[in-house]
Design a binder for these strands. Structure first.
Lengths: 197, 197
DNA sequence: TTATTTATTGAACGTGGTTCAAGGCGAGGT
DNA sequence: ACCTCGCCTTGAACCACGTTCAATAAATAA
């Protein structure tokens, strides 16, 4: 009867991530509470700490899921698009990013709200997923600037990603722009349409 | 002897804002605690709540100061620059924004970290300051796109501000880019140098 | 089965924002 | 000068929350 513990632990781990994800999705990161979580996942408060170092570690696990979902969503949108040139491709990606942020606002927010607090120790999966996203952007950019050296292009990839992120972030922030989604799309289109022309 | 209460209240208000600002500047928003604050400002914990509704309101007061400082810093940098055209002007503004964020990281962060939580009720001073910043950007943009209608230009102003913000935000985030300050400047220069060409 | 090790529990601890009943103090009237 | 009224101030107490830990239960080994 060996391995019963491992199995239960894995089950609990999944249950906790599911419960945390559901809570973040509906109420946001701030509404995630240890006691409520234990109740939903069907365990004691203390049990959480047998599986995760602390709640931040649990949120990181949720973020890992979210990040993968985001990456494959953007990829899928790009793949489903007929190739109308590098600018159109980048615009498609940015619109996909926006749509994900709109449809999963709290989960998307948690990606950035949590990591800010955790200094040092960037997990491996994080850099991997980020690298995948950057690679997606790098492809059309290489077509636009074939003579640009890799270092400069890498910098431009980050700049563009950050720009899109900023536009989506502040665009969804009621108190700053109060801009409806289609206006945000126009902003993204305008910005990315200008690149390389 | 009329107005003694008002006077003391005003003094306490200033003392509290000063103490809160100092704490945020050195330790970040998360290290701001009511008890410590009362101790530094020389009052009881309860007294804070006679002057401010809650700690968020106090942080808002700090943010008002920070926002004004940010605005005048960017203005000053632009004014101190010989006019090398609209792109150069926007680049100067973005570099000033970056420099402010680097030199007052915690205060700058508090501008965005707090407001996110406070829904509704955007204070008047906030929109005013934001409008001033947007007006700064609108000037060079009007020179670049003289035939663009006001609505589209307004959208572009927001898009550019958001882009710069995004580049600075993620650029200062160790876990995402770990990009040194001069690299961030290059990103900003590249992006804004492309606009309108 | 019994012993030993490991997991689980939930009450308790520490921290921190916010409240409130009790006492203090300024302003106006006498 | 004194009294009175109402606001200010105080800090102990309240509540919510993350995290811990001694006690309990369960699983593995002998």
């Amino acid at each position: 009867m060996a391995g019963k513990v491992e199995e239960r632990k894995k089950k609990l781990r999944e249950a906790l991530i599911d419960a945390a994800e559901a809570q973040i999705e509906t109420g946001g990161l701030a509404t995630l509470k240890a006691r409520k979580l234990a109740q939903v996942a069907g365990c004691s408060v203390g049990a959480i700490y047998n599986v995760f170092d602390d709640l931040d570690a649990l949120v990181m696990a949720v973020n890992a899921r979210t990040f993968r979902r985001l990456g494959s969503f953007v990829s899928a949108q790009v793949a489903a698009q007929t190739d109308d040139g590098p600018n159109a491709q980048m615009i498609t990606m940015s619109h996909a990013y926006l749509r994900f942020a709109v449809e999963h606002t709290f989960l998307w927010r948690a990606l950035f709200d949590l990591e800010m607090s955790v200094d040092g120790a960037v997990p491996d999966w994080y850099l991997q997923e980020l690298g995948a996203v950057f690679a997606l952007i790098a492809a059309p950019l290489a077509r636009l600037f074939p003579d640009m050296d890799a270092r400069a292009r890498d910098l431009m990839v980050r700049a563009l990603f950050s720009s899109v992120h900023g536009i989506v972030l502040l665009g969804l922030e009621k108190r700053i722009s109060a801009v409806p989604q289609d206006q945000i799309e126009i902003m993204l289109t305008q910005l990315l349409g200008q690149i390389g022309n």
